[in-house]
Nucleic acid binder design. Structure first.
Lengths: 339, 339
DNA sequence: TTGAAAGCGCTAACAC
DNA sequence: GTGTTAGCGCTTTCAA
């Protein structure tokens, strides 16, 4: 592969001039420029980004660490981020932690070693150690979907999202509800649940600890909705903190002959494409994934340019999408007997 | 951030010795090693991968270009690839082409500029220009899910997959079938359709051009299954070349009151998680996504080490997973009248 | 507007 | 085992 030196030789100019031409920082005479361009085309020269990064101490790349790419929610965020950054000439290292703390930690270390210009991250483990490393080295970092005190973040207003779900169910007359909470150690999940529970409470509906199921945030958790159905105070509605869990629950309910929404209402979170494809389609709390990706990008670029001192927390508004999986609560007594 | 020189100074040794220690290629005396390690810990030294890559002409990174990360099929492949490569100390640049040729092309160029050690790719556009660049520069490349004459590839035996679907439907008595083909310009899709049509033909069932619907390979295409239902020779079974399309079709059919599998059988392709979550769950042709990812990794590493001259085409066996979306064909006449 | 030259952090060849 | 040193491809002064 040709080097800048070879281009310079072929064009009969010095390497410095070729560099000036490439970076367009100093104007190069038109005739020289033409000769250089000719040499570049002739030799098929392509700048060595690795050498440039080494010299300028700037890699024009950032790392995006997500807990699980196979969840379309994160895949969509990743797409939005990569696209937005790409328009700024920055490439994204998409790292999938595969829900594994050790993998996540290793990714962050590798990103640091690669000297990425910044990190965007939605962590799966406790962010303590990561912060020690990253913050200690002064690597710009913005958290996505999880607020971290003292650090920048972009996330949906999760409390509000939970409250939205609660209000919707209350309006439909539901008084006994269950929650498929998922990874309660994550602040975003806790906030969704808290927002839901608080709003329910404000409407005179009590949600006890037994009504809330935790566990890995996957379809498998949804299947456990049956445990909720076996309780003496059988719920007439269930709130799941993400769509995959909601779909898992829907599937399990249909399997045991419980009809959605006639016998039980279901609300998800995220609004992934699949939530529009079930029958009935899933009522859910939509997150603006493109907006989150763009906001995170903008914020990170600001931080990278040293334009942001105090930690900023960007909050995006969730939206309630009323679809087919929720309906008015049936007479609870009748249903309890029927079951 | 500390450099190797500072570490050397702190440990009272030369940079060469520190380098030897770091790369463990030459044995370093235990006592020196201890002093160096101490200095590293003290200074918080981390090797500069960017400088090392520049010096060694080896980035220990590869690029993985997929047409669409939001399709769980590719997300799972990406996970498998990244994981396998990671165990070899190689990091993966996951690039999402977002079904856009220009984006795909730009990704490949950036990967070349970054001097990745190799490229793994499932292209969305015609691979011509990409091959000119990549092959011309001698960058190792392995294609995933698409065979390219003269180049390495790893893919499911798509013909066989199509045939498997056909055999299953024929065994259930289906004689009139439709195909939701998707992106027929892609060789893998063409092979799936061809395998299906040929096997049908071998069993005395004719599939005409009108029975095959093309278009972007998304849920939207599935919805067009209704066009197939409106034909005079209404199909009793439909083969979709991926699960997302199959799910889209299922959804559209249920919406118009056609029951799956009682009135129509549906077969998908890929076996993404969601195909297990619909009700009924989707009969599908499973691809071994982890196997594909691993095989592609192994092959690419071989190519990178110059161990492979002649183009290799690794074929993975597809598996038919009989689930709930297929059943015996009902009496076609009766159904045609009923509708 | 152009050229000459130093040097980024690291590895590897060689000498000791 | 360890030290010395050249140099990877590029950018960036500085001088002409």
């Amino acid at each position: 592969m040709a080097t800048i030196r070879e281009v310079a030789a072929a064009a009969g100019v010095s390497v410095g001039t070729v560099s000036n031409f490439l970076n367009a920082r100093v104007t190069v005479a038109a005739s020289t420029a033409a000769r250089i361009q000719e040499a570049i085309d002739l030799l098929g020269y392509r700048v060595d980004a690795s050498a440039r990064a080494f010299r300028t101490r700037q890699t024009n790349s950032i790392g995006l660490v997500v807990p699980n790419v196979t969840n379309p929610y994160f895949a969509e965020i990743a797409r939005a981020v990569a696209h937005a950054l790409w328009k700024h000439g920055i490439q994204t290292f998409l790292c999938d932690a595969a829900d594994d703390e050790a993998v996540e930690q290793a990714h962050v270390e590798q990103l640091i070693d690669r000297r990425v210009d910044g990190i965007l991250m939605s962590y799966t483990s406790e962010p303590g150690r990561i912060l020690d490393q990253v913050a200690g080295l002064g690597v710009p970092i913005v958290f996505i979907d999880r607020a971290v005190p003292g650090h920048h973040s972009v996330e949906t207003d999760n409390r509000c999202g939970g409250a939205l779900a609660a209000r919707h169910l209350v309006a439909l007359g539901h008084r006994r509800v269950g929650v498929l909470a998922g990874a309660v150690r994550l602040p975003n999940i806790r906030e969704r649940v808290q927002g839901f529970v608080d709003e329910m409470c404000a409407n005179g509906v009590e949600v006890t600890e037994g009504d809330v199921l935790g566990g890995p945030q996957a379809a498998e958790l949804g299947r456990r909705v049956c445990e909720l159905m076996d309780r003496p105070s059988r719920p007439t509605a269930v709130f799941a903190t993400n769509d995959i869990v909601a779909i898992g629950a829907w599937r399990a309910l249909v399997e045991i002959g419980v009809r959605v929404p006639e016998q039980i209402s279901l609300v998800g979170f995220d609004d992934i494409e699949m939530s529009r494809l079930t029958v009935p389609d899933m009522t859910t709390i939509a997150q603006d994934k493109v907006g989150i990706g763009q906001a995170a990008t903008t914020l990170l670029l600001d931080v990278m340019r040293g334009r942001t001192e105090a930690p900023r927390h960007v909050r995006m508004e969730p939206r309630l999408l009323v679809r087919g999986s929720t309906a008015r609560a049936a007479d609870p007594e009748a249903r309890y007997v029927a079951a």
